[in-house]
Design a protein around this nucleic acid. Structure first.
Length: 346
DNA sequence: TATCCGTGGAG
DNA sequence: TCTCCAAGGAT
């Protein structure tokens, strides 16, 4: 009696459960490295459902990497608005330019060369190499971490366990169809070996999963405790001129929401600013709006109060004046769309 | 190694 | 309402 190899079980499962995704080549088709790269960057820490529409819009507007490389950065930031982690958009644009300038518009195939490009780290380099070029790179994302930690019941908590898990992935990765294998393992983690209530009855490798056999699979992967999030406070100033346009400004190029537009406001501090109007862009009859906006970032909560006022003619030196019906045409992140919604009632 | 960097959905 | 977490990268 023979035991099918792990990779064969995974690939057979994949062949019968292949998901149709906007960026995924059909079986037997050759993937486009530009499509693979664009989707992988968008999918960093972002769900498949959220990415789908953004991916289609980007590809429609910039069909080739040369098109993206030539686009103004502000156009890219505007299309990216709402996706989050805006350094990805800045690096995406920079990377496109480097691929055109240094690689004649063709993405390199090997991990080391990919790793030199901005916005491409260990995971994305391996994923592009495997998926776009079918090179047996060890691809490990959050899904695969979970699958492998359960397969071997790894007791070491994340993130310290990453090197151990990566070595296991390297051992498991087959020489044949490594790109399909990587996508299969990610699909398995997303659809079967889920964080809560994994569907072990549907898993092609449950018979050899140590966590499934000997214990509660949901216990894995173990994780180190995360620090709790502090709350910061600030105020924003919603200034309208006679035609209804609102004052917006460009944020600093780096750091939180770097390069994006904002509604002018105070600094964000550990306590509610005692005299926020001192930071208002103009002297005016500022009225505080009932309520405000609460928004949660990766590592802190933000509690914003909103002040509003009106002027006749808006001074262009103060910033950019944009009517709310044109907010879709500027790089306004979700935080400030929430502010607009709070003021306008949608 | 630890911290910073968004957002939306699920439970 | 709150926590977790999703195809991570840069510093």
């Amino acid at each position: 009696m023979t035991h099918p190899a792990h990779a064969d079980l995974i690939l057979d499962w994949y062949d019968h459960n292949r998901r149709r995704l906007p960026w995924r080549a059909e079986a037997g088709q050759v993937p486009d490295p530009y499509h693979v790269w664009l989707s992988e960057v968008m999918l960093q820490q972002t769900t498949v459902q959220t990415v789908a529409d953004y991916y289609r819009r980007f590809l429609t507007r910039w069909p080739r990497v040369q098109d993206l490389a030539q686009a103004p950065l502000d156009d890219v930031l505007t299309e990216w608005a709402g996706l989050g982690y805006y350094a990805r958009a800045r690096n995406l644009h920079k990377c496109a330019a480097m691929v055109v300038a240094r690689h004649r518009g063709s993405f390199p195939a090997d991990e080391a060369a990919l790793r030199l490009l901005p916005g491409i780290g260990d995971y994305t380099a391996a994923a592009i190499s495997a998926i776009a070029f079918d090179i047996p790179a060890a691809v490990m994302d959050g899904n695969i971490e979970r699958v492998v930690s359960r397969l071997f019941a790894v007791e070491e908590p994340l993130p310290a366990a990453k090197p151990r898990l990566k070595a296991l992935v390297a051992d498991l990765t087959p020489q044949q169809r490594p790109g399909d294998y990587a996508q299969a393992m990610m699909d398995l983690g997303a659809m079967v070996c889920t964080p809560r209530r994994p569907a072990c009855g549907l898993c092609p490798v449950s018979a050899r999963c140590v966590a499934r056999i000997s214990d509660d699979p949901e216990r894995f992967p173990l994780k180190s405790p995360k620090p709790d999030k502090p709350t910061r406070y600030g105020a924003v100033f919603w200034l309208t001129r006679k035609d209804g346009a609102v004052l917006l400004r460009r944020r600093a190029e780096k750091g939180l929401l770097g390069g994006m537009m904002e509604v002018p406001g105070t600094e964000w501090l550990d306590q509610r600013p005692p005299a926020p109007l001192g930071d208002a862009p103009v002297k005016a009859e500022w009225q505080r709006l009932e309520g405000g906006v609460r928004h949660t970032f990766t590592h802190f909560h933000l509690d914003l109060s909103i002040y509003r006022a009106a002027v006749g003619l808006g001074d262009p030196k103060l910033g950019t004046w944009v009517t709310p019906d044109r907010f879709g045409e500027v790089a306004l992140p979700t935080l400030y769309r929430k502010v607009a919604k709070a003021v306008l009632g949608r």
